[in-house]
Design a binder for these strands. Structure first.
Lengths: 207, 207
DNA sequence: TCATTTTCATGACAATTGTCATATCCGTTC
DNA sequence: GAACGGATATGACAATTGTCATGAAAATGA
């Protein structure tokens, strides 16, 4: 896996490079010293993951992330922090970063990088414990599907349809035949008085 | 690394066991079928990570996690979900679970497990991408369709698709032929890298 | 004005979708 | 054990959907 490390302390970036490359699974394409370099390096090398200090002189990691993500919304950026700073962390998440890890947490470095490369988000506990506060007001009022005679299996199918899966994919997911999925869907549409899967997805997502 | 898998579908748990053990890095100590078993198995075997379905008959994964975490606050529990359910996810985080991954996401399974074992929290983008809404409800940034080369007329069509209309209906609405609508749609799907109108509706409603 | 682009349209085609009738397997109930 | 209902499957069918190649006509711009 190819990555780029950006930190204003060369000692830190070199240590990280050494540790990570020792695993044999990581190739550090470049090392940068500040946000400006991060932007330039990302542009030219396109690493799978950008491992970057959140606080730097010149241009901070946050600013660099903003610039990069504006152009490449799929960029995978993992921040390095020396100590936790709510302000920074929250901002980084809002920007679309994939998470952060403590510099001194060598143990999690490699697994976290890999998880991020696979599309996951990785965080320490500090943020997680506060997440519920943020998320709480969001809990959508749940529509009562059972009131309309929708069974458990049917609800599963509804959710998968609302995830954009095809009948074949749903069948694979639930270990049913494609025909059976079609039958379920047919019954669902009738119960909810809808016409097709798209209306069903819209219904699920907006009620 | 020693783990326990709990899922009410034996086929799923066996598949996971096979996949994970094939890596040579994971040892599946036990397999459970419901929340009750999860509690008992965790107690006796003390796995490094408990990989558990979030929805099960008998006792749900959520309830089991609650029981386990009440006694062992350091337990590392990673939930398996078939599809995203805000309600469950939020609850799981509040309880102190280490995150969740989609069952079908085989790729991230191993890296995620390892990251969790090292003390990190792991989850998908679904939750993260919604954070800005909660943290800065004022500045709901609209997705920039024009950045993807979506034209005005195309956007109109997207909105109608997300309203659940058929191509014929959209054509009537915009005074175009049905074929033209199909062509527009085709181009939209390509630009947004989506497969069909349902995915488009979902995309429009959730981004 | 000529060239080019944009907009809209057609028809052909394959794939997917939704409906329906029918059948099997299983567990429950009487 | 027979009857019944639920879960799952199949095949046939029509409609809808998405893709593609191609072209007409309107708008734009040099």
């Amino acid at each position: 896996m190819n990555i780029i490390i950006v930190d204003d302390d060369p000692f830190v970036s070199l240590s990280l490079k050494t540790i990570l490359e020792a695993s044999g699974e990581i190739k550090v394409l470049e090392i940068g010293n500040n946000g400006t370099e991060a932007v330039a390096l990302y542009e030219t090398r396109r690493p799978e993951v950008l491992l970057m200090d959140i606080r730097m002189d010149e241009m901070t990691g946050l600013e660099a992330a903003e610039v990069i993500l504006k152009k490449h919304s799929d960029a995978k950026i993992l921040f390095l922090t020396t100590f936790l700073d709510d302000e920074y962390i929250v901002k980084s998440l809002m920007l679309g970063a994939k998470g952060y890890i403590l510099k001194q947490d060598f143990e999690s470095l490699l697994p976290s990088l890999k998880a991020v490369a696979k599309g996951q988000n990785v965080f320490g506990n500090e943020i997680i414990t506060r997440l519920p506060d943020f998320l709480a007001p969001a809990s959508r009022s749940q529509y009562d599907y059972s009131a309309r005679g929708i069974t458990g299996k049917e609800l599963e199918i509804i959710e998968l349809v609302a995830g954009g899966l095809s009948n074949r994919e749903i069948a694979g997911q639930l270990y049913l035949s494609e025909g059976t999925v079609r039958n379920y869907l047919s019954s669902i549409l009738e119960k909810l008085e809808l016409r097709d899967r798209t209306q069903l997805a819209v219904f699920y997502l907006t009620t």
